[in-house]
Design a binder for these strands. Structure first.
Length: 437
RNA sequence: GCCGCUAUCGUCUAGGGGACUAGGACGCCGGAUUCUCAGUCCGGAAACCGGGGUUCGAAUCCCCGUAGCGGUACCA
């Protein structure tokens, strides 16, 4: 599911919850690249992850074909629609003759296999009373008598959604801006059928950092990718809500229940927004830090596909203050579960001069420690800088590189404690051997 | 081409005629803290697209430009 679609779903959900369920809304995600069934599965999956619960999920058009057929017959019988065998070329020719701002008007034919077009008036305007934009006027004259059903009888989108909305009793349609110019067509269908129109709210579109349509090359573009990147659903909800909508008191961190309380579609902005992952990262980091340790352990274990054992719990405890995403958690604690991946640059930079002496001293101090909790480790190591006449960093960094392979890790005392007595000594020994070579 | 939408720091936004010396957040830069990174705390740079109106007064209202975006299918 595209991130833009996810935001639309979120706004729908917030609006419905804000109104205590008195609104009936419909999820609509128009991803042109995918087939409908695959799309629906994917959407449901994304919505589940985002924890946006709906009584009924997206309804596929196929399941409503009877209503469509009935509505179509009605229009044909009343003369509001007619069969016309004009091709795209014919329409083009008609416009060349009548002017580019003139919509196509066809003539009725008898052929049963001709497409069905809806009659659009020449005069007047169709007005979309948009909750976000106010009234938007579209001259009827500029719209073609558009096709509502193919020659084979299957119906087209603008006809189908209009009928669906009416039949399902949809009261509010909250969807992307790309549907604004389609709305008059749906209004025209509704009017011809004598149905009442729902309220519409057209959301500004979401763009990538370059201002163009959001796509894969901008990093995450789908909910699935957000999930893989290690973001928390609650953080994603918070961030997405802020894309196009701002709380009046400038709040940035807004938990979902508060979002429900404060969000109103009317307050959504009109301008397109750009999806900026940096802010999402920051928000996500805040949510991650506020998680109780048990919960933190649970989500980390689930994301990594590892058992939530004591070691992972200990690792979580020392990394929680640092990581902004679940993926970053693994980058920071990986060395506690697997042999260190040696970063050559880190070695060159750190493992020189007094590093061997510092490591020797550290090894000795640690070897003589019975307890191996952070406090004991710190007690063993903290006298070293002064004794060796070195700045603390000159002592601790080599140890860090020795046990983790790189220059970045959680606190050194905590890291050693989680690694354990034996393994810590083993890694320091290995580093010393390598330094001698 | 035609129809339509939009325009405040790099980004998300607040602000809807005087409260604007244009506020907040992310990011960025600097400082403090620390064993690294991150975090935290302080501080800083950074915006009303352009031009005309209306008005005593315009970021705010109107018009024109410009730019971006969307629609314009027997697609959804």
């Amino acid at each position: 599911m595209h991130i833009g679609g996810a935001r639309t779903a979120l706004y729908n959900w917030l609006a419905a919850r804000h109104d205590n369920g008195s609104l009936v809304l419909r999820i609509e995600d128009t991803d042109r690249e995918r087939s409908t069934e695959e799309n629906v599965e994917q959407i449901l999956d994304a919505l589940r992850w985002l924890e946006l619960d709906w009584d009924e999920g997206p309804v596929s058009q196929a399941s409503r074909s009877e209503q469509h057929e009935a509505a179509l017959q009605r229009l044909l019988e009343s003369g509001a629609a007619y069969r016309d065998s004009a091709t795209a070329k014919d329409v083009e020719a008609w416009k060349a003759e009548h002017g580019a701002d003139c919509g196509y008007r066809g003539t009725q034919v008898d052929a049963a296999d001709a497409a069905v077009r809806l009659r659009v008036p020449d005069e007047g305007e169709t007005v979309v009373e948009d909750l976000i934009r106010g009234p938007v006027n579209f001259p009827n004259r500029s719209y073609d008598d558009f096709v509502i059903a193919r020659g084979d009888g299957s119906v087209l989108y603008n006809f189908a959604v209009a009928v669906d909305d009416a039949e399902m009793g949809v009261t509010d349609v909250v969807r992307g801006d790309d549907h604004l110019s389609n709305t008059p067509k749906q209004l025209l269908v509704l009017e011809a059928l004598g149905f009442e129109a729902p309220r519409y709210a057209h959301l500004p579109l979401l763009h990538g950092p370059d201002g163009r349509k959001l796509s894969k090359r901008h990093g995450a573009a789908s909910v699935q990718e957000l999930r893989e990147a290690g973001y928390l659903p609650a953080a994603v909800r918070n961030y997405l809500a802020l894309l196009g909508w701002g709380a009046d008191d400038d709040a940035t961190l807004i938990p979902t229940d508060e979002l429900v309380r404060r969000f109103q579609v009317e307050d959504v902005g009109k301008a397109a927004a750009i999806f900026d992952e940096k802010k999402l990262r920051w928000i996500n980091g805040r949510y991650m830090r506020e998680l109780p340790l048990d919960e933190y352990l649970r989500v980390v274990a689930a994301h990594l596909g590892r058992p939530a054992d004591e070691r992972l719990r200990a690792a979580c405890e020392i990394v929680q203050e640092k990581a902004q995403t679940l993926e970053e958690v693994w980058r920071l604690i990986r060395f506690l579960f697997e042999p260190p991946v040696e970063d050559e640059k880190a070695w060159r930079k750190t493992m020189k001069d007094e590093a061997p002496a510092a490591l020797e001293a550290a090894r000795e101090a640690l070897a003589g420690t019975d307890d191996f909790d952070p406090t004991a480790v710190e007690a063993a190591l903290s006298p070293l800088p002064e004794r060796l006449g070195l700045k603390p960093g000159r002592v601790y960094q080599p140890i860090r590189v020795a046990i983790s392979g790189g220059t970045v890790s959680p606190g050194i005392f905590e890291s050693l404690a989680v690694l354990g007595h034996e393994e810590s000594l083993r890694r320091i020994d290995a580093a010393l051997i390598r330094l001698q070579a």
